[in-house]
Protein backbone atom coordinates (compact mmCIF):
# COMPACT_ATOMS: atom_id res chain seq x y z
CA UNK A 1 0.00 0.00 0.00
CA UNK A 2 2.88 2.29 0.67
CA UNK A 3 3.60 2.48 -3.04
CA UNK A 4 0.22 4.08 -3.53
CA UNK A 5 1.38 7.23 -1.77
CA UNK A 6 3.98 7.79 -4.43
CA UNK A 7 2.15 6.61 -7.47
CA UNK A 8 -1.54 6.96 -6.77
CA UNK A 9 -3.58 10.01 -7.63
CA UNK A 10 -5.22 10.33 -4.25
CA UNK A 11 -2.15 9.82 -2.08
CA UNK A 12 -1.54 13.47 -1.26
CA UNK A 13 -1.27 13.63 2.52
CA UNK A 14 -1.56 16.90 4.38
CA UNK A 15 1.87 18.24 5.21
CA UNK A 16 4.24 16.35 3.03
CA UNK A 17 7.91 16.91 3.51
CA UNK A 18 9.97 14.95 1.06
CA UNK A 19 13.67 14.25 1.13
CA UNK A 20 15.07 14.72 -2.35
CA UNK A 21 18.58 13.53 -3.19
CA UNK A 22 20.39 14.00 -6.47
CA UNK A 23 22.94 11.55 -7.83
CA UNK A 24 25.60 12.26 -10.38
CA UNK A 25 25.44 9.12 -12.49
CA UNK A 26 23.13 6.21 -13.27
CA UNK A 27 25.64 3.92 -11.54
CA UNK A 28 25.47 5.87 -8.30
CA UNK A 29 21.71 5.99 -8.62
CA UNK A 30 21.24 2.24 -9.01
CA UNK A 31 23.62 1.54 -6.15
CA UNK A 32 21.85 4.05 -3.92
CA UNK A 33 18.42 2.67 -4.85
CA UNK A 34 19.52 -0.80 -3.77
CA UNK A 35 20.68 0.58 -0.41
CA UNK A 36 17.53 2.59 0.19
CA UNK A 37 15.49 -0.49 -0.48
CA UNK A 38 17.70 -2.54 1.81
CA UNK A 39 17.25 0.01 4.58
CA UNK A 40 13.56 -0.77 4.62
CA UNK A 41 12.33 2.69 3.60
CA UNK A 42 8.63 2.44 2.77
CA UNK A 43 7.55 5.45 0.70
CA UNK A 44 10.11 6.32 -1.88
CA UNK A 45 10.73 6.65 -5.56
CA UNK A 46 13.50 7.14 -8.09
CA UNK A 47 13.25 9.80 -10.81
CA UNK A 48 15.17 9.63 -14.07
CA UNK A 49 15.04 11.38 -17.46
CA UNK A 50 14.76 8.01 -19.23
CA UNK A 51 14.33 4.40 -18.12
CA UNK A 52 17.55 3.23 -16.44
CA UNK A 53 18.36 -0.48 -16.76
CA UNK A 54 18.57 -2.43 -13.55
CA UNK A 55 16.62 0.08 -11.52
CA UNK A 56 13.49 -2.05 -11.26
CA UNK A 57 15.54 -4.86 -9.74
CA UNK A 58 17.42 -2.52 -7.43
CA UNK A 59 14.17 -1.02 -6.20
CA UNK A 60 12.60 -4.45 -5.85
CA UNK A 61 9.58 -3.55 -7.95
CA UNK A 62 7.08 -6.26 -8.71
CA UNK A 63 6.49 -6.92 -12.41
CA UNK A 64 3.85 -4.65 -13.89
CA UNK A 65 0.35 -6.05 -14.31
CA UNK A 66 -0.53 -3.78 -17.19
CA UNK A 67 -0.34 -6.71 -19.61
CA UNK A 68 -3.17 -8.45 -17.77
CA UNK A 69 -5.49 -5.51 -18.46
CA UNK A 70 -4.46 -5.47 -22.10
CA UNK A 71 -5.09 -9.18 -22.42
CA UNK A 72 -8.54 -8.89 -20.86
CA UNK A 73 -9.29 -6.03 -23.24
CA UNK A 74 -8.17 -8.08 -26.23
CA UNK A 75 -10.46 -10.96 -25.22
CA UNK A 76 -13.35 -8.56 -24.58
CA UNK A 77 -12.82 -6.93 -27.96
CA UNK A 78 -12.74 -10.28 -29.69
CA UNK A 79 -15.89 -11.63 -28.03
CA UNK A 80 -17.68 -8.29 -28.33
CA UNK A 81 -16.93 -8.06 -32.03
CA UNK A 82 -18.04 -11.64 -32.73
CA UNK A 83 -21.27 -11.09 -30.83
CA UNK A 84 -21.98 -7.74 -32.42
CA UNK A 85 -21.39 -8.86 -36.00
CA UNK A 86 -23.20 -12.17 -35.61
CA UNK A 87 -26.19 -10.50 -34.03
CA UNK A 88 -26.37 -7.62 -36.50
CA UNK A 89 -25.68 -9.47 -39.75
CA UNK A 90 -26.88 -12.95 -38.82
CA UNK A 91 -29.87 -12.45 -36.54
CA UNK A 92 -31.28 -8.92 -36.27
CA UNK A 93 -31.16 -8.09 -39.97
CA UNK A 94 -29.83 -11.03 -42.02
CA UNK A 95 -28.20 -9.45 -45.03
CA UNK A 96 -27.69 -11.66 -48.08
CA UNK A 97 -25.19 -10.12 -50.45
CA UNK A 98 -23.89 -12.01 -53.46
CA UNK A 99 -25.67 -15.16 -52.29
CA UNK A 100 -23.31 -15.55 -49.35
CA UNK A 101 -24.36 -16.89 -45.97
CA UNK A 102 -25.41 -13.89 -43.82
CA UNK A 103 -23.44 -14.95 -40.75
CA UNK A 104 -20.28 -16.30 -42.41
CA UNK A 105 -17.42 -16.12 -39.90
CA UNK A 106 -14.59 -16.00 -42.40
CA UNK A 107 -15.68 -12.68 -43.86
CA UNK A 108 -15.77 -11.17 -40.38
CA UNK A 109 -12.17 -11.90 -39.41
CA UNK A 110 -10.77 -8.48 -40.44
CA UNK A 111 -13.27 -6.47 -38.39
CA UNK A 112 -12.99 -8.79 -35.39
CA UNK A 113 -9.22 -8.28 -35.49
CA UNK A 114 -9.47 -4.50 -35.81
CA UNK A 115 -11.92 -4.15 -32.93
CA UNK A 116 -9.75 -6.36 -30.69
CA UNK A 117 -6.70 -4.24 -31.47
CA UNK A 118 -8.57 -1.00 -30.92
CA UNK A 119 -9.85 -2.02 -27.52
CA UNK A 120 -6.43 -3.37 -26.49
CA UNK A 121 -4.70 -0.12 -27.43
CA UNK A 122 -7.21 2.11 -25.68
CA UNK A 123 -7.11 -0.03 -22.54
CA UNK A 124 -3.31 -0.14 -22.50
CA UNK A 125 -2.92 3.63 -22.67
CA UNK A 126 -5.75 4.55 -20.31
CA UNK A 127 -4.78 1.67 -18.04
CA UNK A 128 -1.28 3.14 -17.90
CA UNK A 129 -2.73 6.47 -16.80
CA UNK A 130 -4.86 4.82 -14.12
CA UNK A 131 -2.02 2.69 -12.73
CA UNK A 132 0.36 5.68 -12.66
CA UNK A 133 -2.22 8.05 -11.25
CA UNK A 134 -1.85 10.42 -14.17
CA UNK A 135 -2.74 13.14 -14.89
CA UNK A 136 -1.55 14.69 -11.67
CA UNK A 137 -0.48 18.25 -12.24
CA UNK A 138 0.26 19.12 -8.64
CA UNK A 139 2.92 17.20 -6.81
CA UNK A 140 5.14 18.39 -3.95
CA UNK A 141 8.23 17.57 -6.02
CA UNK A 142 7.38 20.30 -8.49
CA UNK A 143 8.08 22.79 -5.67
CA UNK A 144 11.78 22.03 -6.01
CA UNK A 145 13.58 24.16 -8.58
CA UNK A 146 16.32 21.61 -8.86
CA UNK A 147 13.85 18.84 -9.66
CA UNK A 148 13.02 20.49 -12.98
CA UNK A 149 16.22 18.96 -14.34
CA UNK A 150 14.84 15.45 -13.88
CA UNK A 151 13.48 15.62 -17.42
CA UNK A 152 16.86 16.77 -18.72
CA UNK A 153 19.87 14.97 -17.23
CA UNK A 154 19.51 14.66 -13.45
CA UNK A 155 18.85 11.56 -11.34
CA UNK A 156 16.93 11.76 -8.08
CA UNK A 157 15.68 9.64 -5.22
CA UNK A 158 12.74 10.99 -3.28
CA UNK A 159 11.67 9.65 0.10
CA UNK A 160 8.57 10.47 2.06
CA UNK A 161 9.50 10.06 5.73
CA UNK A 162 6.87 9.23 8.29
CA UNK A 163 8.47 11.19 11.13
CA UNK A 164 11.10 13.84 11.82
CA UNK A 165 13.39 11.14 13.11
CA UNK A 166 13.08 9.10 9.94
CA UNK A 167 13.72 12.25 7.93
CA UNK A 168 17.13 12.69 9.54
CA UNK A 169 17.95 9.03 9.24
CA UNK A 170 17.02 8.97 5.57
CA UNK A 171 18.98 12.13 4.85
CA UNK A 172 22.05 10.58 6.40
CA UNK A 173 21.53 7.37 4.50
CA UNK A 174 21.23 9.20 1.19
CA UNK A 175 24.29 11.26 1.97
CA UNK A 176 26.30 8.13 2.71
CA UNK A 177 25.15 6.72 -0.65
CA UNK A 178 27.01 9.55 -2.34
CA UNK A 179 24.19 11.97 -3.08
CA UNK A 180 25.59 15.11 -4.65
CA UNK A 181 22.76 17.27 -3.32
CA UNK A 182 20.02 16.88 -0.72
CA UNK A 183 16.93 18.99 -0.27
CA UNK A 184 13.89 18.86 1.98
CA UNK A 185 10.86 19.70 -0.11
CA UNK A 186 7.65 20.66 1.58
CA UNK A 187 4.37 21.33 -0.12
CA UNK A 188 3.38 24.77 1.10
CA UNK A 189 0.01 24.48 -0.51
CA UNK A 190 -1.57 27.47 -2.14
CA UNK A 191 1.65 28.17 -3.98
CA UNK A 192 -0.18 27.93 -7.25
Amino acid sequence: MSEKTQTGGSGLTKHLSLVLAEFASPDALVAAAARVRGAGVKCWDVHTPYPVHGLDGAMGLKPTRLGVFSFIAACTGFLGAVTMIQWMNGYDYPLVVGGKQPDAYTAMVPIIFEISVLLTGLTTVFGLFVICGLPRHHHPLFESERFARVTDDAFFISVEPKSEEEKHRVSELLESCGASYIEHVSDHGGAL
Binding site: P51, V150, F156
Partner: peptide
Amino acid sequence: LGWRGSNRHWQHYERAYLILAAI
Protein backbone atom coordinates in the same frame (compact mmCIF):
# COMPACT_ATOMS: atom_id res chain seq x y z
CA LEU B 1 0.01 15.01 -17.44
CA GLY B 2 2.30 15.80 -14.51
CA TRP B 3 5.01 13.37 -15.61
CA ARG B 4 7.90 13.39 -13.12
CA GLY B 5 10.21 10.68 -14.40
CA SER B 6 9.21 8.32 -11.62
CA ASN B 7 10.72 4.87 -12.06
CA ARG B 8 7.52 3.36 -10.74
CA HIS B 9 5.88 4.99 -13.77
CA TRP B 10 8.66 4.17 -16.21
CA GLN B 11 8.18 0.50 -15.37
CA HIS B 12 4.54 0.52 -16.49
CA TYR B 13 5.30 2.97 -19.28
CA GLU B 14 7.86 0.69 -20.90
CA ARG B 15 5.42 -2.19 -20.78
CA ALA B 16 2.66 -0.07 -22.32
CA TYR B 17 5.05 0.94 -25.08
CA LEU B 18 5.95 -2.69 -25.73
CA ILE B 19 2.28 -3.72 -25.88
CA LEU B 20 1.46 -0.87 -28.26
CA ALA B 21 4.38 -1.88 -30.49
CA ALA B 22 3.26 -5.50 -30.38
CA ILE B 23 -0.30 -4.70 -31.46
